[in-house]
Amino acid sequence: MSRHIDHEAEATDRVMFGFWVYLMTDLLMFAILFAVYAVLHGNTLGGETGRDLFSLPLALQETLLLLTSSFTCGIAMIAARQRKKAQTLLWFGITFALGLAFLGLELYEFAEFIHEGHTMQTNAFLSSFFVLVGTHGLHITSGLLWMGVTLIYVMKRGLNDHLVRKLAMLSLFWHFLDIVWIFIFTTVYLRAFV
């Protein structure tokens, strides 16, 4: 029996490590998008620049939402490790809501731009903006999807080792997305006003 636990623990250790390496590959994918944005963000063809388009308060709101969700996600993980099901569901629920709010704000911002005629076909600056921020948004969406599905399974099966491992991976992913957002906030939004 002790051997079995050993085997499980080793598997968890491996999976967490593999997931960490995956996160690194994802970071490198973002690196390309950041590089493209850094090179192309001036190519507006005389159109509106980031300074004319972006709203700093909105970006700050998004940042705070995501940062708080990263924090609540951490608290949720503490509860999950102690196998406190109700608390886990509550805190992940809050995380989910915050993430959804973040996504809502981002979509609102995109919709505004597109409504004003600033689409990603307009120029290279907007292409790289939409793709960089949009890719982050897609990651958030998949994180929310994953959170939703895992939570449904938690409700059905309770907090077993397998699901806690899934949640641990999810929380890594979520913290990681917040770190990527710090750089989007800085190099896309704040930088436009420098």
Binding site: L28, M29, V39, A124, S127
Partner: peptide, 28 residues
């Protein structure tokens, strides 16, 4: 991952008409 991202950008140029690597629209 660098290849994956670059291919996606190329795909966006071809499919959605973005301007990453085009000669028009400020692409490079």
């Amino acid at each position: 991952p660098l290849l994956t991202a670059t291919l996606f950008l190329m795909f966006f140029d071809r499919y959605f008409g973005t301007h990453f690597f085009t000669t028009t629209g400020g692409g490079d």
